[in-house]
Design a protein around this nucleic acid. Structure first.
Lengths: 135, 135
DNA sequence: CTTACTGTAATAATTGTATTTACAGTAAAG
DNA sequence: CTTTACTGTAAATACAATTATTACAGTAAG
């Protein structure tokens, strides 16, 4: 699991709290990673309409385009994070044992169910809920 | 995320379907990994009372000690898998920005909530439910 | 046309996960 | 009582996934 969702939530909170535009450098200082990674994640938020990105000199940077009621599930869907799952799955290479044969599909179904459960959990939390915790 | 839970579910299904004892070598052939890894995971299931392990020559190996109603959440708790979470967490090293300062706790709380949601989802599925899918 | 940014990609460094190998411990079987 | 067939456990190694670094083309304000 990557930390893209973590970065996205942190960035949205930062932009929510800083009206006007912020650069990937400013975000990277709060988030503690490099600007290139920030830009890669924020590009996904931009495509989902959650942030606006302006290029060029002077007023360029990122701005939050959502409401205080935006749910974390919306952010998770925008970055497309799979919370659960694994590239290693048991039984893949064994086609003689019926259990082995079926395990890949079974495990992927379970991981999918859990991912849905995670998203449902995140749909209960808004960025404003988190902002309240901080300030 | 490791595949310990995957291995544990596969092993329990195998033992559920093969009465009598099975060795870590037999399990490793169905699961497609090495016996040492199997033994490490099954040790956790043994400590939780889900399987019985017999040592020595002849009749040694593993046997399932639960019922058909055993839930996948019980297996997950036995192996102690964290389904969601990340060692990399934003803001760790920045103690000047209030958002950065609070992100580690916020993210860990979110991951904990999601883990609980995953366990709740797994509590709806029994090993017998899965066995039905296979046979 | 320079400047301050974003968008994007390739490569390197780091960390996490699984494999391999090895051996001490245990109890059944001869 | 010794061999045998296993489990329990711990290194060390190999491999895969994640993050960091570097670089540069594209864009629009000044």
């Amino acid at each position: 699991m990557t930390s893209d969702f973590n970065i996205a939530v942190h960035a949205v909170l930062y932009l929510y709290h800083h009206p006007g535009s912020s650069t990937s450098l400013q975000l990277s200082e709060s988030i503690c990673t490099n600007p290139a990674r920030i830009r890669k994640v924020l590009l996904l938020l931009k495509k989902a309409g959650i942030v606006e990105a302006k290029e060029g000199a002077g007023k360029s940077g990122y701005q939050f385009k959502g409401t205080r009621r935006m749910k974390l599930s919306t952010i998770a869907e925008a970055v497309g994070t799979d919370f659960t799952g694994s590239s290693w799955i048991s039984g893949k290479d064994n086609h003689t044992c019926p259990i082995a044969e079926n395990m890949p599909e079974i495990m992927n179904d379970i991981y999918d169910d859990m991912n849905q459960a995670c998203l449902k959990e995140l749909s209960k939390i808004s960025i404003h809920d988190i902002a309240i915790k901080i300030f």
